[in-house]
Design a protein around this nucleic acid. Structure first.
Length: 290
DNA sequence: GCCCAGGGAATCG
DNA sequence: CGATTCCATGGG
């Protein structure tokens, strides 16, 4: 893979395991907009980025070589060999099918604070509505970027009262967001320097926040803290796991976690993304047969 | 109109 | 303890 840059347009050629539709539609991030087939607008790291894909050629704009190297290369996890991950997961014939179906997924490396707030909003909510709430919140409190609004910084969003947040129509989640902001501001919870914490310790930290349970914490750890061994289990993943691995019968989340840890180990997070995309686009397990 | 959503806290038995 | 109930809102 090599890239060329001119006039703030950066071109990645011969990408491998890169499909922008799968990357964005697999539920890991919310601040994107589909413009056309394989043409998207993303807002992240205080920047608007357009991204267009034609085959294995990916065009990023506006984007300089410096921005690619300092932000987007890491964001799109470009230095990881996904072919190798798929090969390892494909030892299991069931996972082989899911991987083959979505072999262009990559795990984005997002910002912890934005990811945390976003996934608190995600609870018992649907993706279009989550995107709407985050969009209204950014417009109300974030910095204008000309063609959109940046996700509000902690100090910007901290100006909002619980009532202000409720007004953004986030419902019962407003008090959770307010509690989260308080604990981040007063450093009761520190999500900036987490590298020296084990995943279990980090989980414990995140669970201090009201509205953060196992599922939200797992998403934050997987999508923004590099903990690729966790297996966020939401209703879709639970359903598809029951369908594919548990004879389509009711199975509690603890059992699913243990199964995933045993079967996929440090690759469980990747497996989860392939399964989520597979389940959601094919509506797998929507109706239970037994 | 009705079911449900990338759940979790509060309450109950 | 585990099981049930409630929470706001609007997409499909």
């Amino acid at each position: 893979m090599k890239y060329t840059e001119n006039d703030r347009t950066l071109i990645l050629e011969n990408t491998e395991n890169f499909n922008i539709e799968q990357i964005l539609e697999c539920g890991q991030c919310f601040r994107f907009e589909k413009l056309n087939n394989m043409h998207y607008k993303i807002i992240a790291f205080g920047k608007v980025l357009y991204i267009k894909q034609e085959g294995t050629t990916v065009i990023l704009y506006p984007c300089t070589a410096e921005e690619y190297e300092s932000i987007w290369r890491r964001y799109f996890d470009m230095d990881r060999n996904y072919g190798e991950i798929i090969e390892i997961l494909s030892a299991d014939p069931i996972m082989r099918t899911a991987c083959a179906y979505a072999d262009g997924i990559r795990l984005l490396d997002q910002q912890p604070y934005e990811c945390l707030i976003s996934f608190i909003i995600s609870q018992n909510n649907n993706i279009p509505r989550i995107k709407g709430i985050i969009s209204r919140m950014s417009e109300a409190y974030g910095t204008s970027l000309g063609e959109g609004y940046a996700f509000p910084t902690l100090s910007q969003l901290d100006k909002a009262t619980e009532e202000d947040l409720f007004y953004l129509r986030m419902g019962f989640r407003a008090k959770y967001i307010r509690d989260c902001l308080d604990k981040l501001v007063n450093k009761e919870v520190d999500i900036e320097k987490t590298d020296e914490l084990t995943t279990d310790e980090l989980l414990g930290e995140l669970l201090k926040i009201k509205g953060v349970g196992r599922k939200v914490a797992d998403c934050v750890m997987l999508f923004s803290m590099g903990r690729r061994e966790v297996f966020p289990t939401d209703v879709w993943v639970k359903r598809v796991m029951e369908y594919l691995y548990f004879d389509n019968s009711e199975t509690d989340i603890k059992t699913i976690h243990a199964f995933a840890k045993d079967k996929w180990g440090e690759y469980a997070g990747y497996a989860q993304q392939y399964l989520f995309y597979y389940a959601r686009t094919l509506k797998i397990g929507k109706e239970r047969t037994k």
